[in-house]
Write a protein that binds this DNA or RNA. Sequence first.
DNA 1: GCCAGGATCGTC
DNA 2: ACGATCCTGGCA
Length: 192
Amino acid sequence: MGSEQFTDILPLNRAFYDRETIDVARDLLGKVLVHVVDGMPKIGRIVEVEAYLGTEDKACHSSRGLTSRTRVMFGPPGHAYVYMIYGMYYCMNVVTEKEGNPCAVLIRALEPVLNISQKTKGPGLLCQAMKIDKRQNGLDLLSAHFFIGTPPADPLPFSVVSRPRIGVHYAGDWKDRPLRFYIGGSPYISRK
DNA sequence: GCCAGGATCGTC
DNA sequence: ACGATCCTGGCA
C-alpha cells in the first residue's frame, strides 16, 4: 500500500466535465485531485463539493456577467477556475457544461491521500495544502501535473448527502437550494 | 479613483 | 461574533 499505487492515475476525460453541473458535482465525490509540485504528487480524495449553476444562479459569480474574473467559467469544460476570496484564501472550481454556459463545481474538502501535511477541510485550506493559487487559474485539467482522476482501488461504497451551500446568504431564493454534496459520514467535511 | 462586499478561517 | 486582508466590480 505505498505511493506507487497512485502513480498511474489518468485524468478524467473532457466528456466527464461536459455534462449537467449537478451530475458532475456528485460524480466528483470519491475522485482524487492530483497536483504534481516539484515532481512530488500531492493527492487528495474529494469528499465535499458545491454546484454553481451559471447565469441564473444568484450565488454564482457568472450571474453578474462576463468579467475578467469569470472569463474562465465561460470557457470550455474541464478547466480550473481559481479565485482569491477575503484577501487571503483561494478557492478552486472545475468548469462544467459547454463553452458559453458558465457553470462550475467548487471543491470544498479533501481527504488527504499522499504528500499532504496541512488541513484540507474547507476550500481555502485545501488550496493551501495542495499549493493551488492564481497560477492554476485557467489551467486545463486534462494535463499531466494537475488533474482529477479515478483512484486505482475505489474503497467502500458511500452515500451522498445534499445540503444548502455555505456562505451564500446574499443569493436570494438560491441560497436554500441543496447544491452542496458530501460523502456521508466522512470525517473530512468542512463543517456540518 | 473610490468604496462596499466577499463561494473563508481562526480566535474570542 | 469579529477581525484579517485584498481583489473585484460598480459607479463617478
